[in-house]
């Protein structure tokens, strides 16, 4: 028993130390647990911000700035996720870190300069972002609230699909954002959303597929929000969608047809579905797709086609 107690108070000591890492007394030699250079969140964030600024200015010492950015990103990532030998930091440290990130506006700065950060650093940015995004205090998600006040973050991320070298990193962050209704709403209702119709068709397969997963997530994750969006923007969305269904690219055609089936068969989208099937051109398109040589396209087209037929059987006006 006594041993356990001692162990506990020892742990407490560590926590106290890590909150006040500046106080000289409990430095590394006494508490070897956190390694030799335990910086406080404020220090790391400050150092990272300076390095990113230097990178943005594009001074002569660009390589040093890049190194500094990578190093500090790893520090932050290890605080949040831990490493194979150490656990993640305590909630208090993480809270401090998050607060520093909000106050310094660093998330936006990192995303804006993502293409200047080195290969591994880009992935670290995404991992730090995704972890901070999931932070919860009770039922509140403070990072989501923060991003709502800074929608530029989302727009910059969506724009990331324009640049090959950061597209996939932005994709992982965007899908994480799309999990939150408030953020999905901002993205759906922005003009940039319609760029996705272009992104899903780019010639590079990996980027196109990644963009499609994000696109699908935005259109299916929050049923009520999506139904409302589709009803409100029916003409614009489906005229763009038509282009995907007629795409030269087999993968785009197959994926968009499958998604169309899912959207029409979702009962939340009832109004959209009735509107879609009341247009004879859509029926023609599906019947032509049934003739496609590809069995998978035929199969997916059949799923959409059956919606037309079952409605007709119910005596729905055509």
């Amino acid at each position: 028993m006594a041993k356990g107690k001692a162990g506990q108070s020892w742990l407490k000591g560590v926590r106290v130390c890590s909150i006040h890492p500046l106080s000289q007394e409990c430095d590394s030699e006494k508490m070897p647990l956190f390694g030799k250079s335990q910086k406080s969140p404020a220090e790391v964030v400050k150092a990272l911000k300076e390095a990113v600024n230097a990178l943005e200015r594009g001074d002569k010492k660009i390589e040093k700035a890049q190194d500094d950015v990578s190093k500090n990103l790893v520090l932050i990532k290890n605080m949040l996720y831990g490493t194979s030998d150490s656990e993640p930091q305590t909630d208090i440290i993480v809270a401090q870190l998050a607060q520093e990130l909000y106050n310094s506006n660093l998330l936006l700065l990192l995303i804006q300069n993502l293409n200047r950060i080195d290969f591994e650093g880009k992935k670290d940015v995404a991992q730090v972002f995704n972890n901070i995004l999931r932070r919860q205090i009770g039922t509140r998600s403070p990072t989501v609230e923060y991003i709502c006040t800074k929608p530029e973050i989302l727009f910059t991320l969506m724009n990331g699909y324009e640049h090959q070298e950061i597209a996939l990193n932005c994709g992982t962050m965007l899908r994480e954002c799309a999990r939150y209704e408030a953020l999905a709403k901002i993205m759906l209702h922005s003009d940039d959303f319609f760029n996705f119709f272009r992104y899903v068709e780019v010639s590079t397969f990996d980027i196109a597929s990644d963009a499609f997963s994000t696109f699908k997530e935005l259109l299916t994750r929050h049923k009520m929000l999506c139904a409302e969006f589709l009803e409100l923007n029916y003409d614009k969305v489906f005229s763009h969608y038509q282009r995907l269904l007629n795409s030269e690219n087999y993968v785009t055609r197959r994926q968009s047809l499958k998604l169309l089936g899912e959207l029409l068969l979702d009962r939340h989208n009832f109004t959209v579905m009735t509107r879609y099937i009341s247009n004879p051109d859509n029926l023609k398109l599906m019947m032509n797709m049934l003739k496609e040589k590809s069995r998978n396209i035929q199969f997916e087209a059949f799923h959409v086609f059956k919606v037309f037929e079952s409605r007709q059987a119910c005596g729905f006006p055509h």
Partner: peptide, 30 residues
């Protein structure tokens, strides 16, 4: 898809790199 996306995000001398990937007809080419 997952493989292609993952390979694109790895960079190590002992891991097979993906140079390019695209769609040709109903085939994906790496």
């Amino acid at each position: 898809q997952d493989e292609v996306i993952l390979m694109r995000q790895l960079n190590h001398s002992a891991i097979l790199p993906l140079l390019s990937s695209f769609v040709a007809d109903h085939k994906v080419v790496c």
